[in-house]
Design a protein around this nucleic acid. Sequence first.
DNA 1: CCAAAAGTGTTCATCGTACACCCATGA
DNA 2: TCATGGGTGTACGATGAACACTTTTGG
Lengths: 229, 229
Amino acid sequence: MVEIPKLAVAVDLVVLTMADGVLNLAIVDRGIPPFEDQPALPGGFVLEGESLDEAALRELKEETGLDLEVAHLEQLASFGAVDRDPRGRVVSVAYLVLAAELGDLAAGSDARGARWCPVNDLPTLAFDHDSIAAVGLERAKSKLEYTTIATRFCPPQFTMSELRSVYEAAWGVELDPRNFSRKVLTSRGFVEDDGVRSGGRGRPATLYRAGDATSLHPPIMRDTAPDAP
Amino acid sequence: MVEIPKLAVAVDLVVLTMADGVLNLAIVDRGIPPFEDQPALPGGFVLEGESLDEAALRELKEETGLDLEVAHLEQLASFGAVDRDPRGRVVSVAYLVLAAELGDLAAGSDARGARWCPVNDLPTLAFDHDSIAAVGLERAKSKLEYTTIATRFCPPQFTMSELRSVYEAAWGVELDPRNFSRKVLTSRGFVEDDGVRSGGRGRPATLYRAGDATSLHPPIMRDTAPDAP
DNA sequence: CCAAAAGTGTTCATCGTACACCCATGA
DNA sequence: TCATGGGTGTACGATGAACACTTTTGG
């Protein structure tokens, strides 16, 4: 058999959470070259004995302390430009992680620090991580339309307002609370009743938890801007 | 710096075409172990000096003679189970290729033969290629809904019936020719007028060519089966 | 003139949107 | 009882499905 070229394979994580009414991205400050001290996505190399998903889970745990109980993880895309890493040839498999609001991040092994950053105010990231983050953001926005992942941005119990604010923050629009509520409640399996929350001003809100359904039919469509005239 | 593990990286191609009114998948018969003589997806290892996309294009050219003039190519997903290849650790980046009807396939370097196979009558494939093919098929079906890729299954000039038959074959449904025509023609940029074809029985059909648009708003939705009662 | 294929017009149910209105609580 | 937030009912325009009907060719 001819010789098989071998390449370094990394996983990079686009970790999104909802905090203070805006989407936030997890960022680490690199503690080692290349791009030392520059912000980047959390991630690391895939080891020989682990699958891609296992590597993503391990990095997720190491960098954010999250596990799958509270987060949604899915593969995003792979990035393999020859010169994307100055150290040499590295193929990166990007993952998308969605989670409810978390505490502060603890810096991982080769990171100087880790923090949340509002997606509308992102710094320039190392490597091609700007592109990767952009792909992840767009995927998250578009999956809100036809899946129930919005519930993954919410705590186990949430109100209709909280769920709606996920859509509003991600899409940058205002949605009619009444029509939104109806749409969610008539989508079988999107949410289940789970008690009532009193304590705030105004009428107590019904609490919901995520339902069994993963896809939405019909979708909740955002008005993607039609072509310019 | 700590040592970086290196892995073999392959690209595998899910090449779909429309022939005889059904979707067909490109299959090669392996000429070398492992899985010698078994059917598999076309593909091969990524070389050190080429990007993932370049590797996919190269394999596409080698295995089918296609180039991007006539085909649509997009990344599908990456597969990285530790034991997916008996030779050792191989991460595979799968690509989806859509093309109009092509001639016969020429077997590539390490393939004994290559052929088209109707997707409803697929043999068991080597490695985890069954899963990869399934993901590719599902992706193609679902992209018909909200993108204009259906035109990629058609020759440069096509009739409305031909375009409709793409949807009917992929989804296994019958669509009303009149409503379908209206929907396509009112989606700006989906198709452009391109003459008339006479010669068959009946009224001559208008010819169309692919338009500029890539996404459809609103989508053409298939009735995904609602949850069982 | 008839069959076959392409395309138009019309009707009706359904869905999204906008918004008036009612409900339940804390201060 | 008022302000505040939560939720229902209703009217209207847009969209999709079903299908009668016209148009244009070949035999």
